[in-house]
């Protein structure tokens, strides 16, 4: 009967691929921030080389590391992208599974706070960002003791309560969800960075790092911070519709929507291409990818793909990744990365 034929067909197909087959296509997983850049390179690579276009999954930095470090073998990915450096724990897991890897830094990404074009220009300091977003902040009503300020539940509801120079508008921040690397970087660079304005927090970092991390990296949950999509076009329209709202996202979104939204000045610096590339803009991070050594030579095209990624015409100052929003490394660093990646220098932490 028709049905039984289909079943036999399906079973045969299952049996056929059951034995892990040779793979002629590079598999890449990892960060959604690096995704737009990796896919652009992959497409270019597929178009100009004799190899198949790599398949890229956007799993988030952490999810990518998990898949990448799971083992050696064709069912595991060859490359993982990350919007932060590999963590010690992840590196150990990779080592435990016999995975040697090479780290490649591809460029920078700025994290911007932006609001609608028609809204007043925000000029913030890292300290103010910390006060606006942290769950617990130093008590504003009690002068700090020399050694310690008692952290209290964040009392600030309006920007003007933090600093009279800021607009008397409700604090309403649309930010990336906890699974996102952008959020990790925002917490580390903007919030923890902002807390350094307080000497007692600086001291706490040395004495009780765990407590310090908890105090400075926990985002408030009283409604002033709203978990919105990450790098989402919807967020741009939400910002346009609500001039009071401030969005947190990657620089490339600001770049692509510069007619609708504008970035907040942070510590006196505009979030522009040059300021991020020059390291003047404070909330910026490096973007990475990691290559699995054991797969080089087994899966065809890995080295060629890496060469395409680290080519001047891709990640260089005038490369095709720049219009996509990547902020290139300084020239000397690019040369170093190219050398590193072509010789597959083993990463050691």
């Amino acid at each position: 009967m028709f049905n039984s034929k289909l079943i036999t067909g399906a079973l045969a197909a299952v049996a056929m691929v059951g034995a892990a087959q040779a793979r002629d296509q590079i598999e890449i997983v990892g960060s959604s921030t690096v995704f737009p850049f990796a896919t652009t390179v992959a497409e270019q690579f597929g178009r100009t080389s004799k190899f198949k276009t790599p398949v890229i999954e956007s799993t988030g930095s952490g999810g990518g590391m998990k898949l990448f470090c799971a083992g050696i073998g064709l069912e595991h990915p060859d490359i993982t992208n990350a919007s932060r450096r590999i963590k010690g724990k992840e590196f150990k897991k990779c080592q435990a599974n016999g995975i040697d890897l090479t780290e490649v830094v591809i460029g920078f990404d700025g994290i911007v706070l932006a609001n609608a074009k028609g809204a007043p220009q925000l000029e913030l300091t890292l300290e103010q960002i910390y006060l606006a977003t942290a769950k617990k902040v130093p008590d504003p009503n009690k002068p700090c003791q020399a050694a310690w300020c008692e952290p209290v539940k964040n009392p600030y509801q309006k920007w003007s309560e933090i600093d009279p120079s800021l607009p008397a508008k409700k604090i309403e921040i649309l930010g990336p969800p906890p699974t996102s690397g952008t959020r990790d970087a925002f917490q580390e660079l903007a919030m923890s960075g902002g807390s350094k304005a307080y000497p007692h927090m600086k001291k706490l970092k040395k004495t009780d790092k765990k407590m310090w991390k908890k105090l400075t990296r926990t985002v408030r949950d009283d409604g002033a911070w709203i978990d919105a999509g990450e790098n989402d076009n919807l967020m741009v329209s939400k910002l346009v519709a609500n001039p009071d709202a401030v969005g947190v996202f990657g620089y490339s979104f600001l770049d692509q929507n510069s007619d609708k939204i504008k970035g907040a000045v942070v510590n006196g610096t505009q979030p522009t291409f040059d300021n991020i590339a020059g390291g003047k803009y404070k909330i910026s991070r490096s973007l990475y990818f990691y290559i699995k050594h054991a797969h080089v030579g087994t899966v065809p095209g890995i080295q060629e793909f890496v060469a395409e990624f680290t080519n001047e015409k891709a990640f260089g100052e005038e490369g095709y990744l720049v219009p996509k929003g990547l902020i290139p490394l300084p020239a000397a660093d690019r040369d170093a990365q190219r050398k590193n990646s072509s010789s597959l220098t083993k990463l050691a932490l």
Partner: peptide, 15 residues
């Protein structure tokens, strides 16, 4: 299956 795939799949085992 949430992945950037340029090539059109040809059978049930291709990406």
């Amino acid at each position: 299956m949430m992945a950037f795939i340029v090539d059109t799949p040809t059978d049930i085992t291709s990406k």
